[in-house]
């Protein structure tokens, strides 16, 4: 089990004069699967980007701590794995090249054993040397999971994790999410009931629209 925590303090996000959510507080500790739900446009993707440090909140702050120590924004990416439909890998490279370059840029040694395990779990092992541009949208989505998990992050953020996936792909995702949830924090932003049934607790964003 990791000793990681994500704490949100009075998060508020506005785009111009449009309020997305207000006065949002939560504290995710050590491990578990946490859901974020809400109708389209409620700010699920915005919130996960704020948690990942990619976007800034309009007010409030997100505090990431590992082993009791605050993580500085410059190092945050080392602790996070992120999957979303708007995340793209490099089409001109093969799956293996994408993962090798990612490991090099992260300055970690590529754990080929772990990568091979994930490639097998996500049914991509036989296609690992093919260019990503030849992949279907479902295969690209499955590759994103390997990209997100290869560096063994303590916080796994999944925005609409099962979009573009067939039943077999969904099964692989649920198996891995349950495995990860036992040792790390997994955040799922989704409207799919099947995705949300995995969650130990769920945050409904429509409850945070109040101006006050």
């Amino acid at each position: 089990m990791s000793n990681y925590s994500v704490k949100a303090e009075n998060i508020n996000k506005t785009f111009g004069r449009r309020l997305i959510f207000n006065n949002l507080n939560f504290n995710f500790l050590n491990c578990g699967i946490f859901g974020i739900t809400g109708p389209n446009g409620s700010g699920k993707s915005t919130l996960v980007k704020i948690i990942a440090g990619v976007n800034a909140p309009s007010l409030g702050k997100i505090i990431h701590e590992n082993e009791g120590e605050k993580i500085i924004p410059e190092k945050l990416h080392n602790h996070i794995g992120f999957v979303s439909p708007y995340l793209f890998l490099y089409d001109e490279f093969t799956a293996q090249e994408n993962l090798s370059y990612t490991a090099d840029i992260r300055k970690i040694k590529l754990n080929q054993e772990k990568v091979d395990y994930l490639l097998n779990e996500f049914l991509l092992y036989n296609r690992r040397h093919d260019s990503v541009k030849t992949y279907s949208s479902g295969m690209k989505q499955r590759l994103k999971f390997i990209f997100a998990l290869m560096h063994e992050p303590q916080l796994v953020i999944l925005d609409e994790p099962t979009s573009n996936l067939d039943e077999k792909g969904k099964e692989s995702v649920y198996k891995i999410v349950e495995e990860e949830g036992k040792k790390n924090i997994v955040i799922i932003a989704s409207n799919e009931n099947q995705d949300l049934t995995l969650c130990h607790s769920t945050l409904a964003l429509e409850d945070y629209k109040n101006q006050n």
Binding site: A52, V54, E74, K75, H77, I80, F82, S84, Y86, L87, F88, L89, Y90, D91, T102, I105, R106, F147
Partner: peptide, 20 residues
């Protein structure tokens, strides 16, 4: 244009991206 900016943001710090 290829939508890979987010990918870079998730694997490297801003100073690494600029230096590269």
């Amino acid at each position: 244009e290829r939508g890979t900016s987010l990918t870079l943001q998730l694997i490297a710090s801003p100073s690494t991206v600029f230096s590269g």
